[in-house]
Design a protein around this nucleic acid. Sequence first.
DNA 1: CCGTTAATTTGACCATGTTCAAATATGTCT
DNA 2: AGACATATTTGAACATGGTCAAATTAACGG
Lengths: 230, 230
Amino acid sequence: MVKNDPATDKGEQTRKQIFESALELFRERGFDSTTMQGIATHAKVVKSAAYYYFPSKEAIIQAYYETVQAEQERLCAEMFAETKDLKIRLATALHSKFDLAKNDRNLLGVVFRYTGEPEHPLSCLGRGTAEIRRRSTQVFRDAIGEEKLPNDLREFLPIALWALQMGLLVMFLYDSSENQRRTRRMADGALDLSLKLLGLAKLAVLKPIRIKVLALLREADLLSGSKNSK
Amino acid sequence: MVKNDPATDKGEQTRKQIFESALELFRERGFDSTTMQGIATHAKVVKSAAYYYFPSKEAIIQAYYETVQAEQERLCAEMFAETKDLKIRLATALHSKFDLAKNDRNLLGVVFRYTGEPEHPLSCLGRGTAEIRRRSTQVFRDAIGEEKLPNDLREFLPIALWALQMGLLVMFLYDSSENQRRTRRMADGALDLSLKLLGLAKLAVLKPIRIKVLALLREADLLSGSKNSK
DNA sequence: CCGTTAATTTGACCATGTTCAAATATGTCT
DNA sequence: AGACATATTTGAACATGGTCAAATTAACGG
């Protein structure tokens, strides 16, 4: 059995020691060059204790990603209370994750390791990560809030924004410009463009396209409410 | 030293044995449950011989992906000689890779393992895979051929189509519908839409957006010709 | 055919992620 | 307190990806 959530105080303590030792070493030497033995030693436990709390080395990164997610939720909730301006809210949602992770770009890459392996419990698109994905889209749903929107777009937008964020996150990892300026600008530009398009969405020429896009995504099971979803 | 291209006949033979044994076992038991020892034994060589020809287990998958790429180039060249119809040519380019890999979806996922790790030699977006990426976009460039197009779009399209294909490839891996019908339809739909948009691209209202998109991508270094590329 | 060089093959070895059954500590109920 | 259950800790082992220096084999110029 594995303890994501230890039952006792001492257990929680141990888990925290291991988690923090791991992060410290990952940051210092990188993910691959850090050994479980090293982590355990640094946390003053024995190697197999680490496996009592984390099913694998990658799972520690996953746990880290969840702390980032939680922080983002906190930050965004705070900011969303301050302004009703959609653009600002969306920009906050997009940028906050980058802000939180900007010093851990090497760690974050591991989150994508099993992207191409649907059955892997840590696949960032798989079953095992559905919950954190839900939380991630929820942030965008919250950002959109009560904004006046047709129903189909209200459903579509958070998922599209989540996808945008995932894409930008990859770009972020590869971005060698100082402070990831390029990714930041791309985020702003993409947002700007999306909002412009949203404004144009009711345009006559574009209406059939919008219908088509949504139908396509629905059939592809990328939006809920499809006949295929199960 | 590692031999991607053995110097002697016998070497080539050995490499082939190892490669084919590996594929056979991967297909039979999956990537992770297949051991290098098993591959070597099946190929009637010793384990370290496998490492003489392939730097890592994942590198065998990379080699497999290259054979798929080569096949796609052959197939497409053939089809491109048959018709000048842009839509058919692009559909061929998109679908051919799926056709070639449809029985190896579990293998193909490994190609994405280092997506989030820019420095890894097998990162599908990194330096080490630049050449195969170039070949992959070249197929789309060839598909577009002599089609009348503004210069900026001519530069942009192949890259966008390559990105579309990568995205669809991931979807393909997750697609549980029989024969990956959903991904196929998505490909057709996306293509249809892209061509419609291409037709609309000259529309007055959309012109500034098109300019903006291209400028954004150029700044992000996703298109060549940027001041940032080096 | 001989010697030299380069290509290939070999087996022994290592590092490390992961497993597991047993031991110990901790909490809980009576 | 004592007994029982549950949570945690432990150390010993394993499986496997990967390395390496040495041995063997092929290629080639003279």
